[in-house]
Design a binder for these strands. Structure first.
Length: 887
DNA sequence: AGCCAAACGTA
DNA sequence: CGTACGTTTGGCTG
């Protein structure tokens, strides 16, 4: 509401403002990690939020053009014809902006055959008639004609969209010296270059204003055209049709038939959940905060999905049970046969209690270790009675720390949410309540010393969990449920146990390696400084750029966002073009410091038990792999000499005789062979010949024995690159061969292994149709950008889609193998343990005398995890440490 | 303190 | 212009 007490209608020309924002904000500063430009969206939303805060409109709408064509282009084909191609970086931003506005519950309006300005005109007229104060926001000068004592125009200035100039009738008179309704007559005379509408030659704003002021209107002016002398008078008489045409075209249509009127545009609460999702995709941070702040201030729907919020008051009352009451409750709940939702309460990592929910019956259990009256609970936890959990791996680990086994998990809401949307970040129970139930879970404000909302009882949490699971069961596709049940839920305890077991390291080796690398690095740094005559921070790309390109005058390398690349490839190029000892020293220094840091991280991560316990993230990837953090044990160096020494520091622990490593050989290529059914590739894997030698022989038309190392290298790069969507350009770059040769190599490859190409194409085509890819076992990955008009975005999605079923199937197979191996180890009573998973490799600790039995189990289970058209080959090695056990 | 970009390790 | 990850550092912003 304005001061006048009248409702305020804010109507915005979305396209013109977004376009202004596009040119006002730097393109490169607003790009998501997958290449989507967002500067126009950001600028628009920022401006829009400012308007909402400042003008406090009661009614809001944003109008968009549908296309460049309208009734105006039909009348005058050259209308707006001078406008060049829309910049590619702008394409695609408008639909995303519309999505963002939809999430904010702002009405967007389009109308076939009309421009956004016509919609604005219509709503402005209707609004004024219905007693609104109307604010029109547009970057198109033609909208000046809409201004009157009830309609004000907000027009962006030259600097962009952050500041809008306010044009009421008085301001228009001051600026142009005419009434707003006369503006289009001025414009008709002057013409509008940007719309490709030439005006009367030699007539500018000054002349036009003078004429219109004198004659009152364009019509009257033309009627008296013969009174005007001089060249301009002659021009006016000769070119009067231009002015008449311009006037027809710049007259905004104010009676467009619209599906909504001003009163329908009342501001509605934002859908906070949707806003978060859209803004997360756009990678807006500060803007998200601004929106949510406004949303909160205005009592938005904070529930997440726009449904009616259900307060926690609806949750059933919680009873706290102990002793026989608890045992009786469990007996009764189990007897129904229905799963019980279980929330493990351990806010700081150590067990404090449990929340249980059976139907609407919610029970809280306080945990005090060693209490005898929890026997029934412990038996229930360890037994097979069905349970629903959230973050099952954490629950498993926390219970295991108390010596409590957990079994019978039939659903994990975290895993289910991830399987449904593997790209989304891991959601807490509270977030799942928002995103799945559309409700908000009352949580205490962590910033408040004395929160006014009490912490949620874990029992109430369990009640929410049960409802989340019910919703997930409804919406998860059957193949996805199958992956959840037969793979993910079963591998969770295996992963949890690997974390708990950890891997032993030889601290002494790490410490001396650390010191050694430190000295090496320091020496290299000194030499590097001597070469350039001063000290620089060798770890600062910025300072290195100064040295290389300014001081040493080297040729510029690949451009990065912040300057020029100093990465290893760029430095190698520089060494060729402009040799200098500094370059080699820098590379060596980088290598040494990086490895030193890695070694130090490992040292620090070693626990009191002399072992490193990584944390695996079961829901951290888009493809189905697991990832490793804190520390990441999936990227320990292996290729270099120092890499081997680092791996040698990973050893068998006390009471174990050594380590055993087992890895799948070329698993992704084998999956490609299977999925494509390519006879040649299948033969390659069944022939017993070295894969790359076999393929090389086919491609180069020689005998396998005559495949040279160079040929093999090329074929190997080609083969591996295939599953990643490698292009001829990329191949030439990697192999440092001409693009013609790379192209020929690919042609020759596909001439022999055509089914591979057909398969890869079909994956993308199928994904375009279905919107997702699927692994052999039914794991799906959705793709949104496969039909994007943005080429970068689309091609990125295509390569990811191409890779997803291959990488994902490999991940599935490895998980199944882990499950099988863990089962066998347990059932056969072996003391050997699984320690690490590195995507296609498993590392085990061998208990004394178990090497052969362990190897047999591992070979059998890994080799039979899937039945493919080609054998799954497993390579096994043993030794006192990780390096020695490798092969 | 929090975030980003660059660089680089693994499969 | 090759997929999937995690960590560290420097440097900027608040």
């Amino acid at each position: 509401m304005t001061d006048s007490g009248k409702p305020t209608l804010l109507i915005v020309d979305g396209h013109s403002l977004a376009f202004r924002a596009f040119y006002a904000l730097p393109i490169d500063s607003f790009v998501t990690h997958d290449g989507q430009h967002t500067n126009a969206i950001h600028g628009f939303i920022s401006m829009f939020l400012g308007l909402l805060a400042k003008e406090k409109p009661t009614h809001v709408a944003v109008a968009f053009d549908i296309s460049r064509f309208s009734f105006r282009t039909r009348e005058y084909a050259e209308y707006k014809g001078t406008r060049g191609e829309t910049p590619p970086e702008f394409v695609g931003q408008v639909p995303l902006l519309q999505e963002a506005l939809a999430a904010m519950n702002v009405t967007t309006i389009t109308k076939e055959d009309f421009e956004a300005d016509d919609i604005l005109a219509t709503l402005a007229r209707q609004g004024a008639e219905q007693g609104f104060d109307v604010l029109v926001v547009s970057g198109d000068r033609d909208t000046i004609q809409l201004v009157n004592d009830r309609v004000t125009l907000l027009y962006p200035n030259a600097r962009g969209v952050s500041e809008l100039k306010r044009y009421d009738a008085e301001a228009v008179r001051e600026r142009y010296g005419i009434d707003p309704h006369q503006y289009p007559e001025i414009a008709a005379l002057v013409g509008e270059t940007s719309d490709n509408l030439p005006g009367i030659d030699k007539v500018g704003e000054k002349t036009a204003v003078k004429w219109i002021t004198q004659y009152g209107s364009l019509e009257n002016l033309l009627a008296h055209a013969d009174e005007i002398g001089g060249v301009v008078g002659a021009n006016l008489r000769e070119q009067r049709e231009r002015a008449e045409r311009n006037r027809r075209l710049n007259r905004l249509v104010d009676d467009v038939e619209l599906p909504v009127g001003p009163t329908d545009l009342e501001r509605r609460p934002m859908d906070v959940g949707a806003v978060k999702r859209v803004f997360e995709r756009l990678q807006f941070r500060t803007l998200t905060e601004r929106v949510l702040k406004i949303a909160a201030a205005e009592g938005a729907d904070m529930s997440g999905e726009g449904e009616a919020p259900t307060a926690a008051a609806d949750a059933p009352p919680v009873r706290t049970l102990v002793d026989e009451e608890l045992a009786a409750w469990l007996r009764a709940a189990v007897a129904t046969g229905e799963p019980i939702a279980l929330v493990v309460d351990a806010p700081l990592g150590s067990l404090e209690g449990f929340g249980l929910a059976a139907g609407t019956d919610t029970v809280h259990v306080n945990w005090a270790a060693g209490r005898p009256d929890y026997v029934a609970l412990e038996q229930w936890l360890a037994g097979g009675d069905p349970k629903l959990v959230v973050d099952g791996k954490r629950a498993t680990s926390i219970l295991a720390a108390q010596g409590l086994p957990l079994a019978g998990v039939v659903w994990d809401a975290s895993l289910a949410a991830w399987l449904e949307r593997p790209g989304s970040s891991t959601q807490s129970l509270a977030e799942l309540v928002g995103s799945i139930l559309g409700e908000s879970l009352p949580e205490p404000d962590p910033n408040q010393l004395v929160p006014d909302t009490a912490a949620l009882s874990p029992a109430t949490g369990a009640w929410y969990l049960a409802r989340i699971v019910a919703a997930q069961r409804e919406r998860l596709a059957p193949p996805t449920q199958s992956v959840l049940t037969s793979i993910e839920l079963r591998v969770t305890p295996v992963i949890a146990e690997m974390e708990r077991t950890g891997i032993a390291v030889d601290r002494g080796q790490l410490t001396s390696l650390n010191a050694e690398l430190g000295e090496t690095a320091a020496g290299l740094a000194e030499q590097a400084y001597a070469e350039i005559g001063r000290e620089v921070n060798l770890g600062s790309p910025k300072q290195l750029q100064q040295v290389l390109f300014d001081e040493l005058g080297m040729p510029k390398t690949r451009a990065t966002k912040t300057g020029y690349s100093t990465d290893a490839a760029a430095l190698a190029d520089l060494q060729e073009a402009h040799p200098h000892p500094f370059l080699g020293l820098l590379l060596q220094h980088r290598d040494a410091t990086k490895l030193r840091q890695m070694v130090e991280t490992l040292e620090k991560a070693t626990g009191a038990d002399g072992r490193i316990h990584t944390t695996y993230d079961q829901t951290g990837t888009t493809t189905g792999r697991i990832s490793s953090t804190d520390p990441n044990l999936q990227n320990i160096p292996v290729r270099t000499e120092v890499g081997h020494r680092i791996r040698a520091a990973f050893v068998a622990g006390e009471g174990y005789e050594g380590l055993l490593t087992a890895d799948y050989s070329q698993i992704e290529m084998r999956i490609m062979a299977h999925l494509s059914g390519d006879a040649g590739l299948i033969e390659a894997f069944t022939s017993g010949e070295d894969l790359h030698r076999f393929v090389g022989a086919r491609i180069f038309g020689v005998a396998p024995a005559d495949v040279t190392p160079e040929m093999r290298t090329k074929v190997k790069a080609m083969s591996y690159g295939l599953a990643y969507g490698l292009s001829a350009f990329g191949l030439s770059k990697q192999l440092r061969i001409s693009s013609a040769e790379a192209k020929q190599l690919m042609t020759d490859y596909f001439a022999r292994f055509g089914a591979v190409r057909d398969y890869l194409r079909s994956v993308v085509a199928q994904a375009k149709e279905d919107g997702y890819t699927e692994t052999i076992f039914g794991r799906r990955r959705p793709f949104a950008d496969l039909n994007s008009p943005n080429r970068v975005l689309r091609e990125n999605a295509e390569r990811a889609a191409l890779n997803a079923p291959i990488q994902g199937t490999a991940a599935d197979i490895m998980k199944l193998a882990m499950i099988g191996v863990a089962d066998d180890l347990r059932e056969q009573g072996l003391a050997s343990r699984m320690l690490l998973q590195v995507h296609d490799e498993l590392v085990f600790e061998v208990a004394p005398g178990e090497r052969e039995r362990l190897e047999a189990i591992v070979r059998a289970r890994m080799g039979s995890a899937a039945e493919l058209a080609v054998p799954l080959e497993v390579q096994v090695g043993t030794g006192p440490n990780w390096d020695a056990a490798a092969h």
